[in-house]
């Protein structure tokens, strides 16, 4: 199938080679003139016949804090993969603002363009120190040659100290990241996300493995980020979702089952049947 598709792509008359396309212009502010900063239309992804996403439609406005819930296998992680370029959608469109077609960009371009992501399983650079982890994530010229001659500017150093304080690792700055606890790694990864200074943050299960107190602090942090950034949170912890959510989307079998405020969604009989019912 993919062969067929590749052949078709070769036949297209409007574009000959991908690499001849002009590079996406991230210098221009993302065009938000028509509302949503992230826009998914009829997106489908399948793995060997299994439809992980099935004509998914989703629009997220700039500055919003959106929670995505749904049972296992509902397609939450696949949706994030599709947005960040890790998985290519078989059908449908994914737009960042009005103009940037995310399907044509690769992971690093999407990341540089302003969409940051935290993995479900906390993933930090274990062999490096906490400070170095943040330094690598710092928004800056990330090309090979620039990396060779890279030096921290004082303002960047200040920003990193600030983030270190924010994620509660101020005293651990030289510690090897691999030796951190699970919760600390979660924090570190969020900190790395902040260093990227993205417009959109995709946060996959941020409070898994955190203590109640840490969960609370995470909730505070995420709410404070909303407004300046657009935050999309995937989470199973309903209490946590309830504490931060303004708008909730429920996914089921790869498409949107319900969307709205937490109260409205949690009273939806279909949602109760497929998802919330498990809890009560």
């Amino acid at each position: 199938m993919s062969l067929l598709k590749d052949t078709r792509a070769l036949m297209r008359r409007d574009q000959v080679f991908d690499f001849m396309l002009p590079p996406p212009d991230f210098e221009q502010p993302v065009d938000l003139s028509h509302g949503p900063i992230l826009y998914l239309e009829d997106v489908s992804v399948s793995f060997d016949g299994f439809r992980a996403l099935n004509r998914l439609n989703l629009a997220v406005d700039a500055g919003e804090l959106r929670c995505i819930i749904g049972p296992n296998g509902a397609g939450k992680t696949t949706m994030m993969d599709a947005i960040t370029g890790k998985t290519r959608a078989d059908e449908g469109q994914i737009y960042f603002g009005q103009r940037i077609d995310l399907q044509k960009l690769s992971e690093y371009q999407i990341a540089r363009g302003g969409i940051g992501r935290k993995f479900q399983k906390p993933t930090v650079f274990e062999a490096l120190g906490v400070f170095e982890n943040l330094e690598l994530s710092l928004a800056s010229d990330k090309s090979t040659w620039a990396s060779l001659g890279f030096r921290l500017r004082p303002d960047q150093r200040d920003r990193m100290d600030e983030v270190l304080q924010l994620i509660g690792l101020g005293t651990q700055r030289d510690r090897q990241a691999g030796t951190l606890s699970h919760g600390q790694k979660q924090w570190l990864e969020i900190g790395m996300l902040l260093m990227q200074n993205p417009m959109v943050l995709l946060v996959d299960e941020p409070v898994a493995g955190m203590t109640a107190e840490e969960t609370e602090r995470t909730a505070e942090l995420l709410t404070s980020l909303a407004g300046r950034h657009t935050v999309i949170v995937v989470e199973h912890d309903m209490a946590f979702v309830r504490s931060i959510a303004r708008r909730v989307t429920v996914l089921h079998q790869g498409s949107v089952l319900a969307e709205g405020s937490m109260d409205r969604v949690s009273s939806d009989p279909r949602v109760i049947e497929v998802y919330l019912g498990e809890e009560t």
Binding site: S106, T123, K142, Q196
Partner: peptide, 15 residues
């Protein structure tokens, strides 16, 4: 970073 977590490095904006 690439050696330890290639995917993460990509999402940090490195090609």
């Amino acid at each position: 970073a690439i050696r330890d977590a290639e995917s993460r490095t990509r999402f940090a904006g490195y090609q």
